[in-house]
Design a protein around this nucleic acid. Structure first.
Lengths: 223, 223
DNA sequence: CCATTTCGATACGGGGCCGTTCCGTATCGG
DNA sequence: CCGATACGGAACGGCCCCGTATCGAAATGG
């Protein structure tokens, strides 16, 4: 969890988490007065959403009202933190994100395997499997949100992959006569299409290595 | 359109289309009495859904009520044909399906290109692009529906691809030491991940060839 | 102690949708 | 012409939701 709630160090900051939401105006008349927000409420709400989705509740069936109920929280407490369902879901999605570890940097092939393996694990992890799919599926239906998520999270990861590929091109391990974005998709696509499309299909243990090696060496018979 | 409405040849059949829906009981007291259904209504309804989705209406915002309104049709007319929104959407989805042309059967490589090119075009065609994505996105959220669609449509197409791959394995054009499902994903994944995930990214003209050839020959530099 | 803010709860008016039922009319088979 | 069925339209009761407001209680800083 790269994004926890208000019990931060460096006390001087804001109220709690949901301050992706600018608050441009607001005279901000000395925060840190009155009763402080309950960090437990934040997590209770997010946790409630996660739980419900895991239990197969479709996103369409999620209402702010129901979420509050399920979280054992007043409706106002939810609206105090997020302006609407979409923003809440975006944070729920973010709460699932682990930072991708930087590539080891020795073998390009091994780095690729690590990256794909990271993807595979993400698509599998108990929580993430059903969860990510459901939420992503929904957020994707809202172009603005999806775009934000894509630029925030997806692009960052892709950049890691691209840098490895560039390194490979530079040192001759990767052919340089192809569009680098295409190459990236060749590695990533197979995992994504399995995880997002086939769903029930599982992502077996050796998948990452198999993909990387097959893509590297080609589908034609070995020489 | 592989699935048109009641103006079928061979007059002896059923009422109109929406008879994916069994109707086990029902004394069925001599159909073909009374005023026949209006085929125009069927298409008007489906067309209305397509139009709305193209205009960016999210699935969650689609209600039977609104669909009927938009189609210029009584709500009852809709319910007479489909028991609910999901079933309607399933038929809408089916209305978008074109049968994949059988592979030419000369070069395995060319057949692969044809199949991937078919996918690319599907993901592009004015109608399909936004449309398929939106509907698939929604239907996928309903496991039962998605499963049905997957088994009905997706599997059939995949089978075409698999048969080409098997042929390639038999005649030595495709390496036989890999899981055939993996190989299939290597070709299909890149297109799908672009079309379904990146959305805005377009699928340029030569994409199919580029993918097939790169996957065939591998990502390592040429010998 | 007081102003401030949050808490859970409850209530509000307004709205949309569900799925059904009923109109009056139209169109078929017999 | 009659019975049956379809049509578009309108209305139904019931449900859930939205977003806001208000409540009394709790928790904080000044």
């Amino acid at each position: 969890m790269s994004r926890t709630a208000g019990t931060d160090a460096a006390g001087t900051e804001v109220r709690t988490q949901a301050d992706t939401h600018v608050r441009t105006d607001a005279p901000a008349p000395d925060p840190r007065r009155g009763r402080p927000r309950n960090a437990a409420a934040d997590t209770a709400i997010i946790e409630a959403v996660l739980r419900m989705i895991e239990d197969g509740v479709s996103i369409g069936e999620l209402s702010m009202e129901r979420i509050a109920r399920e979280a054992g929280v007043g409706k106002a407490t939810v609206y105090r933190r997020w302006p609407g369902k979409s923003e809440l879901l975006l944070d729920v999605m973010r709460s699932l994100d682990t930072d991708i570890p930087p590539p080891a940097g020795e073998s390009v092939r091994d780095d690729l395997v690590d990256i794909i393996e990271f993807l595979r694990i993400r698509g599998l992890a108990k929580r993430n499997s059903a969860l990510l799919r459901t939420i992503v599926t929904h957020v994707k239906a809202q172009p603005a949100l999806w775009r934000e998520y894509h630029e925030t999270v997806v692009q960052a990861r892709r950049e890691v992959l691209l840098s490895v590929l560039r390194r490979g091109m530079a040192c001759g391990e990767i052919r340089a006569d192809r569009d680098i974005d295409l190459l990236a998709d060749l590695f990533v696509g197979p995992v994504l299409s399995r995880a997002l499309l086939h769903e029930w299909a599982d992502l077996p243990e050796g998948l990452a290595e198999e993909i990387v090696d097959t893509v590297l060496y080609g589908v034609r018979p070995r020489a």
